[in-house]
Design a protein around this nucleic acid. Structure first.
Length: 824
RNA sequence: GCGGCGGUGAUGGAACGGUAGACAUGGCGGCCUCAAAAGCCGCUGAGCGAAAGCUCGUGUGGGUUCGAAUCCCACCCGCCGUACCA
């Protein structure tokens, strides 16, 4: 009887064929008022090699949510695509000579096979890949739209350069002074590059976080990254260089209340005026030496806050606007050109860095805020009454804050100001395998956008991918040399390509209208689907992708190309699957678990259930094969229960029996309990681990010998319910068992609703406590009045035993739950 | 430093302020079998006890409460992010 065994290898392909042949998961862009829409989206994969176990988790999670939404009466958009441009394919090409398009397409095929073999319910009619001209045509179009609005611009700047990948990087792609991709130490170079003006959106990117359901951790990371600081901009005047033409140097400070304590002034080594200021002073030589030294220092070393402060005097003075004092100017590397104005007022008494610098250079330290605790220690960064601050003496610094800013404003020496840590997004890359930037440089007309009707600017084939400090595309002379669209004269194409994060900043929009050849999307179609109701992916994208995509949506909304302000209404960040050793999976540690052999051996359903059962999905979890077998056994038992039943009874729709008794009642109750539990878990925190545990309990009840004499309809109902509930996690098995027992396709059935009368029994176990400690448990009628419960508890053996002789002070009764007798 | 999250059996993990440890793994015992595999049933936090039962127990120390893993305060440890950001 070998066929009476759970054989996922037989069941799974059969249902996959049904879903493929019938296009089951496709949805049309035709509005249907009867149903609410739901857009469920997992972050699109980067197709490099084979899918790994993290992908299995990501798409198992998303698929369960998509199925649940469908069966609770929503029209679900659940598409798939590939983030196909990028460095790994190109580096592979450099090593092997294989065109990145070929290796990428092979990898995409592997992903497609995997998704089908996992039974993920994807609307394949909307599939996209960012390296196809039909997609990147619109990436280029968006670039041009941003360019039109001056949100894409070109400027010379000190940028982060990866010497290994031979390309510039966005600030977000530099981790601890190293390249996010290859780990090489990043250098700083002055280069002309393309930027997106994301800083224009800093305020909105920050404020709108309040309105979306995202994990607090991700919101907080974005808030920190945007780094909004409120303070004041204050001008310090330098009359030294030419008294006839004084120069005002603004600084940004979050502590204008400490202005009276500013005893020196520091500029960043990159500040453009540093050499001019030092010129002609005895410091000239020293300043040159110092600045040159700093600029050759490693980025990582310079950022170390622990290292001793260095710097040199500029030989000049500036005037403190609040008290007219002339304070010395310095150049020091602890001041950063990228933040604020590249110059600071130094208040050593109330700032740790300024304090350290002042001690090293023996500069005056003047306390202007007292510590209410009477502690004399400096630096003191807390609040307190002001001293040595002229007219503000005695006032509390927080109270005086506003009036100082007001006073500066009246004097014309300062004003309230806000500063952001966020920098503009550097998007050009000196690499081949990316979306070409649709720009032409003309000797006459300068920077000229490629006309929309000439899009896409197709990526040409080239021979040599090796990076040479400029884009490999520069070698494609035929392609580079073109005519200026404006004047018809000689033009040269931009040879840099776009950061791949540009491609993935709008793909969720393209899914809505993926086959539109006339436009990136039809705004009316977009309005039907956007925003994404549930987005699912890894935390590693907390800043980069999630910030960029939000920026794109806001910018496009401002152009009235769409009408949402936020792309992802709710976000769920999954935890990582670690190796069996609890370490991050990596080729070098040899602990990588591939999903393919697991799926082949245990089936996709078991692999999917296991990965969801392992723990709360937002937490990291170590892979453990023996637990996987436990999940497999559970599925096999459900299959066997269905098989046994179907062997002896013809399929008929499952219904809850009207008045079950005895073991039938127990079974029906358990089924309803499971419906209630699973439904709750699916709707809230996605705690699929406890949902699966509840289905396990139901299956345990079904197969337990005590349920053997339950009536037919009760057994059918219980088995069908288990199959129905397991369907979002194990779709093949759910469909198989449900159909064999009921004759009906489970995905066409609505999600089961718990019968509330079955969620409670006539009696319950009353917990009897004395002073909060459990002393007995007795059966009591459900819904019994408090008096009765109190009576039962007081009469119980355990309570009596502990009562002896003590005075009962009071009795707490929690209906249908417990009684606590308080004694003295 | 700052921000976020977490600390519960041998293990992964459950527990609207109300029976701590659901479910699963592992372990032990049993059934079935000539035997094994598979499957099924039961037990499984620690200590004391013949048993009934008692005591202890959710990182540490306090607090609130009839009752705290859960709420509050202080601290310790771990993970993640970020950092000379003025």
């Amino acid at each position: 009887m070998s066929e009476h065994r759970y054989q996922p290898q037989e069941i799974e392909p059969r249902w996959q064929r049904v879903w493929a042949d019938e296009h089951t998961w496709e949805v049309a862009n035709v509005p249907d008022e009867r149903f609410e829409k739901s857009y469920v989206l997992e972050m699109l994969p980067y197709p490099s090699g084979e899918p790994h176990i993290g992908h299995l988790k990501n798409y198992s999670l998303g698929d369960a949510i998509a199925h649940f939404h469908r069966r609770t009466g929503r029209r679900v958009l659940h598409p798939m695509g590939y983030d196909a441009f990028g460095l790994p394919a190109e580096n592979h090409a450099i090593r092997t000579g294989v065109h990145p398009r070929k290796s990428t397409d092979e990898s995409i095929a592997a992903f497609q096979r995997a998704f089908r073999s996992w039974g993920i319910s994807i609307d394949w009619s909307r599939e996209i890949a960012s390296h196809e001209p039909s997609y990147y045509r619109w990436t280029q179009w968006i670039f041009l739209k941003l360019f039109e609005r001056d949100l894409a611009y070109r400027k010379q700047a000190a940028v982060k350069w990866c010497p290994n990948d031979q390309t510039v990087l966005a600030n977000e792609q530099v981790i601890d002074g190293r390249c996010e991709r290859c780990g090489a130490e990043v250098e700083v170079r002055q280069l002309e590059q393309w930027f997106f003006r994301i800083t224009d959106y800093a305020d909105r990117l920050l404020d709108d976080l309040d309105g979306i359901s995202w994990p607090e951790s991700v919101k907080s990371m974005q808030r920190n990254w945007i780094g909004r600081s409120a303070g004041a901009e204050v001008s310090f005047r330098c009359e030294d260089v030419d008294p006839a033409h004084p120069i005002d140097y603004p600084v940004f400070t979050t502590r204008p209340d400490t202005l009276f304590g500013a005893t020196f002034f520091v500029m960043a080594p990159e500040h453009p005026d540093v050499f001019r200021l030092a010129a002609g002073t005895e410091q000239e030589q020293a300043v040159h030496q110092y600045v040159n030294h700093v600029l050759t220092e490693r980025v990582e070393d310079r950022g170390d806050a622990e290292k001793p402060k260095t710097g040199v005097p500029l030989g000049r003075f500036v005037r403190n606007p609040v008290n007219g004092e002339q304070i010395p100017m310095y150049v020091a590397d602890y001041v950063l050109m990228e933040y604020g104005t590249g110059a600071i007022m130094a208040v050593p008494a109330h700032d740790e860095r300024d304090y350290a610098f002042a001690r090293t250079f023996e500069l005056p330290i003047r306390r202007v805020i007292e510590n209410p605790d009477g502690d004399e220690a400096l630096p003191y960064t807390g609040d307190g009454p002001m001293v040595n601050s002229g007219q503000f003496d005695g006032a509390h610094n927080r109270t005086a804050y506003e009036s100082i800013v007001q006073w500066l404003d009246n004097e014309g020496t300062g004003h309230a100001s806000v500063n952001f840590r966020l920098r503009d997004w550097l998007v050009s890359r000196q690499r081949y395998w990316g979306c070409p930037i649709p720009i032409i440089y003309c000797e006459q007309c300068g920077i000229v956008p490629v006309p929309e009707d000439e899009l896409p600017v197709e990526l040409p084939d080239i021979e040599d991918y090796t990076p040479k400090g400029k884009s490999p595309l520069a070698a494609a002379e035929d392609w580079v040399n073109t005519r200026c669209p404006k004047c018809g004269g000689k033009g040269r194409r931009e040879t840099d390509t776009m950061d791949t994060f540009v491609d993935s900043s709008w793909y969720f929009l393209r899914y809505c209208d993926a086959r539109n050849d006339e436009a990136a999307w039809d705004p009316k179609v977009l309005a039907q689907w956007m925003p994404v109701d549930q987005y699912i992916g890894g935390v590693e994208h907390a800043i980069l992708h999630l910030l960029y995509a939000r920026f794109f949506v806001k910018a496009l909304a401002d152009m009235e190309l769409l009408d949402v302000q936020e792309p992802f209404q709710a976000l769920f960040t999954q935890g990582m699957i670690l190796g069996p050793d609890g370490q991050k999976m990596s080729k070098s540690s040899g602990n990588v678990v591939s999903p393919t052999p697991i799926v082949e051996r245990y089936g996709a359903d078991a692999a999917r259930c296991y990965i969801l059962f392992i723990g709360p999905p937002d937490q990291d979890a170590a892979w453990n094969e023996s637990s996987l077998e436990g999940v497999y056994k559970f599925l096999a038992r459900l299959w066997r229960a269905g098989d046994d039943f179907a062997e002896h009874h013809p399929a008929r729709p499952a219904e809850q029996p009207p008045e079950p008794e005895g073991s039938s009642l127990a079974l029906v109750r358990k089924a309803n309990w499971a419906i209630d539990k699973v439904t709750g878990d699916m709707s809230g925190r996605f705690t699929f681990n406890t949902a699966i545990a509840a289905i396990m309990e139901l299956v345990n009840e079904i197969t337990h010998p005590r349920s053997a004499d339950a009536e037919l309809s009760a057994r059918r109902f219980a088995i069908a319910t288990a199959a129905s509930l397991v369907f979002p996690f194990a779709p093949h098995l759910g469909a198989e068992v449900y159909e064999r027992v009921t004759g009906v396709r489970v995905w066409e059935e609505p999600w089961p609703a718990a019968d509330s009368t079955m969620l409670t029994a006539e009696t319950f176990e009353l917990v009897c406590q004395v002073n909060g400690k459990v002393r007995d448990r007795v059966q009591a009628p459900t819904g019994a009045p408090r008096e009765l419960l109190q009576e039962l508890a007081l009469a119980s053996r355990g309570v009596q035993h502990h009562l002896n002789g003590h005075e009962v002070v009071k009795v707490i009764v929690v209906p249908d739950k417990l009684v606590n007798v308080v004694i003295r």
